[in-house]
Amino acid sequence: MRRGGQDRLLIKTRNRKWEKVIEILFLLSALISVFSLTAITVYLFAKGFPAIWEIGIMNFIFGMEWNPTADNPSYGIFPMIYASAAGTVGAVFLSVPVGLSAAVLLAAVAPPSLANFLRPCVDLMSGIPSVVYGYFGLTVIVPLISEYLGGPGNSLLAVIVLLSVMILPTIIKISENSLRTVPVEIIQGSYALGAAKMETVLKVMIPAAGSGILSSIVLGIGRAIGETMAVILVCGNAAQIPRSVLDMVRPMTANIALEMSYADPFHESVLFGTGVVLFMFIAAVNIVINVLSGNAAKFKDKPPHYLL
């Protein structure tokens, strides 16, 4: 029965027209991604930009006051841009040493059986939903901060700690991959010159995998800026410039998600405007990644000694 069906398909597919139609269907499916990207960009700007224009670009981006429900409302998002940036920078500082160590451990130090156990752990870490990280932060990390360091607990520090854990899998996985693709010749060359294992790791493997490690960090930055649900539960939501890491903050993503449910039409457009600014940051991150991977492609054709 099945065989007969296949034969019929064989005869049918000899028909050139039919082949062409299906090929076009495949192409259209592939083009959906292009349509989506265009639609996302167009609709986000169409909805957000008029509001930014009405407020004034400078007043919007560098304004210090956020008070959309007052009689004389003010819409300045600088404190939120600052909070997003501070949270991201802090998370990267915490996460890079740990992530890079774990990547080196998986790629070169740990015995294969241990590495095979640890890799699924990294996957699980990236699989835990952000809202669960957020709830863990709210019930465990926030009280710890408030008890031992003082302050309300809901703070920039809590944001940084959570974000650093959440971007860890990204940094570990991509760095490990690029450490693994370092040509074995230059590693053996390093040993042949009498270098010890860790000297080889630090002075040969990490520099050779440099562009891959850098793009893992930049990808981590992208994840940290865009993270919403974990951050919203621990940040405290006060739109202010924090004086210390123990002060409450409100990153851009939290601003959008918090106020969307009760916003009037203009307020809603302003929130989309916040999305536009966030989108610009992500676009910048994407450009950096493209440049980095372009550099990595250039290295591939060079002889290994070029990397040293």
Binding site: S33, L37, L44, L219, T228, T253, G275, F279, N286
Partner: peptide, 25 residues
């Protein structure tokens, strides 16, 4: 190249932006 560029860019967009897009579109 256009398709690949679109795919790479979409990968980096955070979920809240997708949420805003779905909300309006």
């Amino acid at each position: 190249s256009v398709i690949r560029f679109a795919l790479e860019s979409l990968t980096g967009i955070p979920s809240i932006i997708y949420g805003l897009f779905g909300y309006i579109f």
